[in-house]
Design a protein around this nucleic acid. Structure first.
Length: 900
DNA sequence: GCAAGGTC
């Protein structure tokens, strides 16, 4: 208050007070003197409040008025307005810029001039941030120009409460020119870059590609678009990956999570599954603990916009529009705030009390006052200018001008009441199960006290029950191997985009929604529901930058600018220094762009062409069924600068369809089969439920994997033959790899092991549509091997056991080993180990040199070894596969000998 | 016709 002592000799002084906005002027006037008078000015919103106040010992007549944000705006002089007359490089580097009071603000300027003439002191009540500091200089320049003698002071306050305002008056300071200069630097850099790059892009692309809008560039809008494009590219280039996990269910149907989570290696999961397979689990721990669900932080603008978008489905832009209207009608506090903690000086109880008569939440507010009030949590952001958004006047639904306005008011008020409530409380139970070496867990939750959740429907806390077990219980379980696929990233929502921008410092709390709006106005992006997607133009623009090596769409340019602005704000660097450095760098980029003009044109054009089938209106809400698409292929091809023919594209599509077609189901139980590639290249489809495996029928054009064994396999082996005499399921043609022979196996295997074995001499077997005249069973076309003693090498036979018309067969129990395609998991397991290590001595898989012995052979290798044995023993004389009987010689050898 | 940041 010493500042005003010198003025005592003049008696009462007159002090001009200027706030950044009308509402603050009104609030300060109200806080300092309820009996203030209000005078109209030429600017309808910006009133003049007058009141008497004692500044320390000095009597003062206070004149309180306001501006409406910045008075001045940077612009290029008129001669630069013709775009085609000026090289954008001149616009960027050399053209002078004016900082002038815009026409709409002329009445505010007049007000300040008129009031300053009549006052000896000026107190600047602009917001306490960089922009506020810059506006302070704009105001003081106008005032000083009229009244050079006027004494200038700066008030710092973080909330418009009596305590804060009083404290500010007692601690008046001088405005900070460094802060103001940092804003001037930002303004100049943004305008020079924005104007020059926008002109360059528009002049280059607009006419050529018949674009309806200008092709603008801005240091905030383009990185915003960059985030949108980045997500779209992630979605388009996503290739699903299959993963496996073990699911454990108990008798109550409760499913437990595997502590290892999802594993992307099927073999590993099968190994672990085999190792832990059992039907009993032990409850190793039942843990119960009290948990809380935290109430929200006080509401900042960013969080408000995200909530409105996510929960109310109102866009950030619209939400801010509605919030500003509510603010101007006095229902809510100032909605542009970074702050998420309430200052201690604000009387929250009074704000709650205002809501106690509300028809919807009045009783809740009353209970808060009486019993349940809890101090709001303190966030870590404070703009030192505005408190978190909160209601300031009660509004009922009928007072709202639109349903959306009511939704916004509800959100703000319910959020505020939730902040003043207690956290929700619950009891969490965790059950841990041990199944041999594997552990599983399940968590359940019961909410014991809803507290803030009662008033706050925008947050969820879902309850889930778990069975009542105690430690040491042995429970019956059912283990299954299940698989899933990774999902592509979800389409970008507006709320997510706001979060990304906030995190990367793109825009401010007051402008983030405007940048999102701008990229839509410029036709760079489109919003459908809450999803925001790039348009063809947006994709082509960003992809062209990327392909040509420019990083104009990345957020780091803005981050660098922020860093430089900080240096000016701290007085470490001069404004001109950072402006020149930044403009020089950008000049380099602009010159490079100009040199690559033709390349940009062709690249941009090729992208637009490649994207002609891209449908920006197609939302990716359900990406579960997404497979790599044509557009993605095209983009990738474009990047390779090698456009494929239509035929090639079709082939690629076909290949992709084949690649992803692995949804085979078990014939017996319907469980999804898992595919296992064997060392011989063939693929086994394994049912983990029935523990059966079968050969996968190979596509005709991929014969590389087909082994000799399967060339004779019938392709209708899953079709009906005849019914099992035990369980009445179908009998299926199977092939024993051990004996290299065929048999009929029951589909009910392993529960039913009925089988009908066929002679080794049958080389192939095929079901026909013909039926046996005697027993009416299906007939089979059989082929016999060359060394068969039979005269006929092919026969149509009835193979039904006991039927006298055909080959004599009988029902028999198959041993598990006999059905080679019913590999058990130990065998598979060994097979995979075999794939992983290879002996350098014998070149076999499954063991290393120091362990080289015959016992290391596994079932899978045994199968192959048998085949290989036969292959090796293929008689060079007669070509017959298999060994000749021990001690005998090849008959052909004898024939040859005889002929010789 | 360009930017971003204030503001109504």
């Amino acid at each position: 208050m010493n500042k005003f002592k010198t003025a005592i000799k003049f008696g009462k002084i007159r002090v001009l007070n200027v706030a950044e906005k009308p509402s603050v002027a009104r609030s300060i006037a109200t806080v300092l003197a309820r009996d203030h008078t209000i005078e109209e000015t030429k600017s309808p919103y910006n009133k003049l409040f007058k009141f008497n106040f004692k500044l320390g010992e000095q009597d003062a007549e206070m004149w309180m008025t306001s501006v409406s944000g910045h008075l001045k705006n940077l612009k290029y002089p008129k001669q630069y307005q013709k775009w085609d007359k000026w090289d954008p490089l001149i616009i960027l580097k050399d053209a002078e810029i004016e900082n002038v009071i815009s026409y709409e603000k002329r009445f505010l300027e007049e007000n300040l001039q008129r009031f300053a003439k009549q006052c000896s002191q000026l107190i600047l009540w602009l917001d306490c941030d960089r922009e506020g500091e810059n506006i302070a200089f704009e105001v003081l320049e106008v005032c000083k120009a009229t009244n050079p003698q006027i004494k200038v002071h700066r008030a710092h306050f973080s909330a418009v409460t009596y305590i804060d305002i009083k404290k500010a008056l007692e601690n008046l300071k001088q405005p900070d020119e460094n802060l103001s200069n940092s804003v001037l630097a930002r303004q100049e850099i943004d305008l020079r870059i924005g104007a020059s790059f926008t002109r360059f892009q528009t002049l280059l692309l607009q006419q050529q590609f018949n674009l309806s809008s200008i092709v603008s560039y801005g240091p905030c809008q383009i990185p915003t678009l960059g985030f949108v494009v980045q997500r779209q590219k992630e979605i388009d280039s996503f290739v699903k990956e299959k993963f496996w996990f073990i699911l454990c269910e108990d008798q109550t149907g409760c499913a437990y999570n595997w502590s290892r989570g999802n594993i992307f290696d099927e073999m590993v999961v099968l190994l672990l599954f085999e190792r832990c397979f059992t039907e009993q689990a032990q409850v190793t721990e039942v843990q119960q603990r009290e948990v809380q669900k935290w109430k929200p932080f006080p509401l900042s603008t960013i969080e408000f916009e995200k909530l409105a978008s996510r929960k109310l489905k109102i866009s950030a832009h619209k939400a801010m529009d509605l919030a500003e209207k509510l603010y101007n009608r006095g229902y809510i506090s100032y909605p542009r705030t970074e702050t998420n903690k309430f200052p201690p000086t604000i009387n929250l109880q009074n704000i709650i009390r205002d809501q106690t008569n509300h028809p919807v939440w009045g009783q809740y507010a009353q209970n808060l006052i009486n019993f349940n009030y809890d101090q709001p949590r303190a966030g870590n952001k404070d703009d030192k200018a505005h408190p978190p958004i909160h209601p300031v006047k009660m509004m009922s639904e009928s007072d709202a001008q639109t349903p959306q306005e009511w939704d916004i008011y509800q959100l703000i008020t319910r959020h505020f009441l939730a902040c003043c409530s207690k956290n929700a409380k619950g009891s969490e139970t965790t059950i841990n199960l041990q199944v041999k070496e594997e552990s599983f867990y399940k968590q359940g939750l019961i909410i014991t006290e809803k507290n803030f959740l009662e008033i706050y429907p925008y947050d969820e806390w879902s309850q889930s029950q778990v069975p009542k077990y105690t430690k040491g219980d042995l429970i019956q379980i059912n283990l299954k191997v299940q698989n899933g696929k990774t999902s592509p990233p979800k389409p970008l929502t507006e709320a997510e985009l706001i979060g990304m921008m906030d995190k990367n410092g793109i825009g401010t709390d007051a402008t983030i929604h405007e940048h999102i709006n701008t990229i839509q106005e410029r036709d760079y992006a489109i919003k459908r529901g809450q999803i925001i997607k790039p348009t063809k133009l947006g994709l082509a623009l960003v992809e062209s930058y990327e392909l040509l090596g420019f990083t104009l769409h990345k957020p780091h340019l803005r981050a660098l600018m922020e860093q430089r602005m900080n240096e000016v704000a701290q007085g470490v660097k001069q404004k001109n220094e950072i402006v020149e450095a930044t403009i020089d760098e950008m000049s380099g980029i602009l010159q490079e762009l100009q040199q690559k003009k033709n390349l940009i044109l062709s690249t941009f054009g090729q992208y637009l062409e490649a994207l002609k089938d891209y449908d920006e209106n197609n939302d990716d809400e359900n990406p579960q069924n997404r497979e790599p698409n044509q557009q993605n292929q095209q983009l990738q091809q474009q990047q390779q600068r090698n456009k494929p023919s239509k035929k090639e594209q079709q082939q690629q599509q076909q290949q992709q369809q084949q690649q992803f077609n692995f949804e085979q189901q078990c014939n017996t139980c319907g469980t999804q089969l898992v595919e296992i590639k064997q060392t011989n290249g063939s693929i086994l489809e394994v049912c983990l439920q029935c523990r059966q495996a079968q050969e996968k029928s190979q596509p005709t054009n991929s014969s590389n994997f087909q082994s000799k064994t399967f060339k004779t396999q019938t392709n209708n082996n899953i079709e009906e033959t005849f019914k099992c005499n035990q369980c009445h399921k179908q009998m299926k043609i199977r092939q024993s790899k051990i004996k290299n022979s065929y048999f009929f196996g029951c589909l009910g295997y392993p529960q039913c092991n009925q089988a009908i074995f066929l002679p080794d001499s049958i080389k192939s077997i095929q079901r026909t549509e013909k039926k046996c005249k005697k027993c009416n069973s299906i007939l089979f076309q059989t082929e016999y091997s060359e060394n068969s003693t039979l005269q006929q090498k092919s026969q149509l036979l009835c193979l039904f056991p006991g039927c006298s018309e055909g080959l004599k067969t009988e029902w028999r129990n198959q041993s598990k080993e006999s059905q080679s395609t019913n590999l058990n998991y130990s065998q598979l397991k060994k097979g995979y180990i075999k794939q992983q290590v290879q002996c350098k001595k014998c070149n076999s898989f499954g063991h290393l040199e120091d362990m080289c012995n015959n016992n290391a052979k596994t079932m899978v290798s045994l199968i192959e070894t048998n085949q290989e044995d036969k292959k090796d023993k293929l008689c060079p004389q007669c070509g017959v596969t298999g060994r000749h009987p021990k001690g005998s010689t090849c008959p052909m050898k004898r024939v040859k000998k005889k002929n010789q």
